[in-house]
Design a protein around this nucleic acid. Sequence first.
DNA 1: TCCTCTTGCGCC
DNA 2: AAAGGGCGCAAGAGGA
Length: 570
Amino acid sequence: MAPRTALAPDPHGPGGRLQPLDDAGAPLGPPEAAADLAAAVAAREAAGHTRWVWAAADSGYAPLLPRLPDRLSRCHDLRLVEALLLGHEGRFGAPRSLGAAWSRLRGLPVPDDLPEPGLADADDGQDTLFAPDRLQLPPGADPLAAVVAVHAEQQRRIAAITDPAARQRFRLLVAAESAGALAAAEMAHDGLPWRADVHDRLLTELLGPRPTVPGTQPRLLADLAVELQHALGTKPFNPDSHTQVLRAFAEAGIQLGSTRSWELKAVDHPAARLLVRYKELSRIHVAHGWAWQDAWARGGRFRPEYVVGGVVSGRWASRGGGALQIPRILRRAVVADPGWLLVVADAAQLEPRVLAALSQDAGLARTAAGGDLYEALAANAFQGDRDKAKLGLLGAMYGQTSGDIGPLLNTLRRRYPAAMGYVEAAARTGEDGGVVASRLGRVCPPATADFLDLTEADTSGEAGGRTARARGRFTRNFVIQASAADWALALIAALRRRLGGLPVADPADRPHLVFFQHDEVIVHTPANLADDVAAAVTEAADEARRLVFGDTPVRFPLSTAVVDCYADAK
DNA sequence: TCCTCTTGCGCC
DNA sequence: AAAGGGCGCAAGAGGA
């Protein structure tokens, strides 16, 4: 069994071509044509795992999934790896499609990446996303040959990382990012169990019955708008318009700086309370109401699209349906299928633990050796005041300077000099225009990247100083957020592998990931395997700790719940 | 009418 | 004086 297999689907139809490769990417045989690509892939996977090398898992794996009997074990996603390598090589943001990488290799003009398909393209279905021309190969180029060539070049570039430990970590990043791409495609395919009837009942309780005329407001929301006007004694106005709201409150003698809810909550007036309530309900109606259900949660599953590496820190983004912003109140609608359960696990206080492991601050590591980190921190340095401990540490990680946080930061600096030195060094690097990297080697964008709106590199003067400090806060947080994302990706990869190894009679009964949100995972599992899954999650977390941070006393405990309904997890 | 920007808030 | 990192989404404001 070849350790790797390059794969290129035919542009039209179910066929494709394969080519076995060695680990350096050299062909071990001639290309093979398959009339039924899914069948050929399944046969090879069943004969022993290989690492599938393809242009991109989102275009390569998703069309195969419905036709495969079981999940694939491993892959190498050329587009994601190209992005990681470009960042590592100081060419952040250069085009990363297969065609772009191939053109660079051949010294040809490099095509720009196509814009990601947005909601406007939803009408086209998935044809847009999976169209072969998204690979950006020039006409006449052989896709399989391009996959083989770009992969070999990427393996060469990875091998060229001089520091052996850094090279090892980068290889882990490449594998974990690619495993994430598999998991993301699978989650989009499987969907998150979603009970429309429960959701509907919740909406009706909060908002009133679903309006029969589309576009009209639910009754309770409309009632609130009227009450609000009466409370202010003003002419009718649109409570969704901050301009009109500010004017109406001003007419009633209440000067507001904004209509943000925290400001409204400080105003002692019935109208302020009504407006806060209106905004809460309106948000649920607009963002996760009946229209959302119709668009995203049909057939008992919420099917968002996850964008692996969609955030520069390595966090995933999502497209459509706000998958990573499901309001807590709606978790009631996430219910396991009959006979199945949800294993919900989230990493407790992930980011401060990451800081402890990264900085190797012995004192902070002791507070992160288990249990409640903030409690231990409070006992050590804040006379048991947990709120102060948490506020101070979060402020240090985000670069906060406001409020009464100064004394807290001073305490932290005195007690945990290595940890504070670590984030402050990252901030200085950013302020000076440099780049920083995650533990596994994901590099942050340079200061000149126009999408960060920091092109005015002149750091003199007041505006320049503000820009530099903003950049410092970004790099300060990046090292932690991105290293936490490293750990979470390693967790996903390890967990996915363990779930794939659980003995099941029918692959349809295999426990599978259905949700991943930065530091939290949900596995949907047959009830009789729930304990095995919970154990697998715990083992995967420890494996991720070991792989990413090596020999560290820091622990990354999970709070794990086996539940029927997501809302019951905490 | 279309498009971009701003505002505000959901999640971590 | 300003004063907190990362996102996605929807609606209003306002210009072309």
